[in-house]
Design a protein around this nucleic acid. Sequence first.
DNA 1: CTGAAAGCGCTTACAG
DNA 2: CTGAAAGCGCTTACAG
Lengths: 326, 326
Amino acid sequence: MVGVSPALVSMVLNGKAEQYRIGEEVAKRVVETAKEMHYAPNLVAKNLRSGKTQLVGLIVTDISNPFYSAIARIVEDRASELNYTVLISSTDENLKNTERLVDVLLNKGVEGLILVPCDGSMKLIQRLYDSHFPTVLLDRYFPDIDLSSSCLDNYRATELATEHLLGQGYKNIALIAYNTEMHHILDRVSGYEDTMKNAGLSAYVHVRKVNILNPRPGIREALEELIHRKHVDAIMFLTNMLATNGLYCLNEMNVKIPEDVAVVGFNGNDAFNLFYSPITYIRQPIEQIAKGSIDILIKRIKKSNYKSKLFLEPELVIQQSSQRIS
Amino acid sequence: MVGVSPALVSMVLNGKAEQYRIGEEVAKRVVETAKEMHYAPNLVAKNLRSGKTQLVGLIVTDISNPFYSAIARIVEDRASELNYTVLISSTDENLKNTERLVDVLLNKGVEGLILVPCDGSMKLIQRLYDSHFPTVLLDRYFPDIDLSSSCLDNYRATELATEHLLGQGYKNIALIAYNTEMHHILDRVSGYEDTMKNAGLSAYVHVRKVNILNPRPGIREALEELIHRKHVDAIMFLTNMLATNGLYCLNEMNVKIPEDVAVVGFNGNDAFNLFYSPITYIRQPIEQIAKGSIDILIKRIKKSNYKSKLFLEPELVIQQSSQRIS
DNA sequence: CTGAAAGCGCTTACAG
DNA sequence: CTGAAAGCGCTTACAG
């Protein structure tokens, strides 16, 4: 339409008019015509030519889980600012799914991955590490693999919560965890165990592990035993899902919080706040974790030796469920 | 590697060996070699060549809202089965954002859009309709635009809930809605108003509208007036967010549910179930709404005159908050 | 039955 | 200062 070659148009529209010393008038005419006709370059062709897709993958366990959807929202917004598009997938904590989704996303041409690794995925993650493909672990990490990650300081989280309960005068404090080898959970267990031991309360350490895919029956069983036989005076739940399921069980059992037993949960939500005895919980800095993961990934994509491991500070939101009733 | 031309490889790998009458042995060798070397075709090149991207866009108001993240999960899973990839964006109920995101997604080459239209987006939707671009409205619709949609039967939803409250003996029933022209909300209001009028209770119709972006202050104000001056005996909240915010306000006001006032919410969640008086709510068939939207879209992409409008059945989940206390 | 050519829409050296 | 050519990795007519 302007009467110049496609190459020239390309140069102008990519802001390389000066570099190629293109006539100002011609450049102006190209820009104006492009605007008039609402020209938008074909991104597929651009991608093929450049070998870049401006695509990144975000693999979580379940995008319908509010924790991960909050993360996804932030990652999406930040990626968009940085001119990247996010492809989101859910693994349901399943290794085979995770492996498949990694392959699918790589095949779709993502330039990097943000990944919540599931139980048993160490070999897969090691392979990703060995392949030098830009990858950032989110929420969970492997201490033996030197990969970038953006996680909570999990040890500090339960240390903080246990100290709070001890400070309130609780001693016989139980922990409900997942039956898993994943380190974010092991760290949370350690933070609790060490704090109890340091307070000379090793005898009161109770850790119960339940199935991650169907936690409710295990939680109910554990609670029955802990409350009726071990006479615990406080219970910490290691994740939001454990706490929510735990509250259903405690209601069914007619256990009064905090009169019969104090409760600390993980990750705040409306259910905690609207509970008859608002639930004290460990707050994760979701914004920082999410933004950290995408910022690290993009830096890594642009600079092949970039690496960063974030362990972000938890915060304890103290509400009624952990107050000592004298 | 096999010693044949790329064209032949392409034919074999796309299952067109027979069509092009390619030698069985050669075909076999191609397939095996492809598997051995983990060959995966470059999808970008494939897309450029075919003009198809196998991409669809999902524009919701906020992917971190549990209702939409539940939808996204189902759409994503179904799209994946159908060999499509979903690009998700959030508008924050803002028209400018919506317009921008539509442009961005079109430019990224999506072959269709699933869209939750925000207030004031009628012109944009009309333009999309006029352009014949494959589009399906989700959750919200425009009665005057003949576009495919997958929504709740909103009128039936509040009719159901109002009938239930009337059946429990409540008469002075108030409604908290958004201050909006969006038809899914207007339909919900009508379902309530008509049911009240049919019961001869026009005098007890109270509709209060609050700001969608910051509902809390408006809700608090409305509740103060409705409860203390209008002496309503039941309150229906038209969305999950309204109900959740409403429960915070009712707690602050020390209003007892259902003794002082009965409550009906929208879309169940843990906060409703774990509330001291579990909240009766209108359940949307999320699975059907989500699956409906993507199935319609894909059919529309493949068949240019395909159209379908779904108005799916609500269900009332009756819990303690709406039981009559005699 | 199989190979060589053309082209999807772009961008980057290379000429002039 | 600007145009013509080549090529990203594929697939589909077209030859043979």
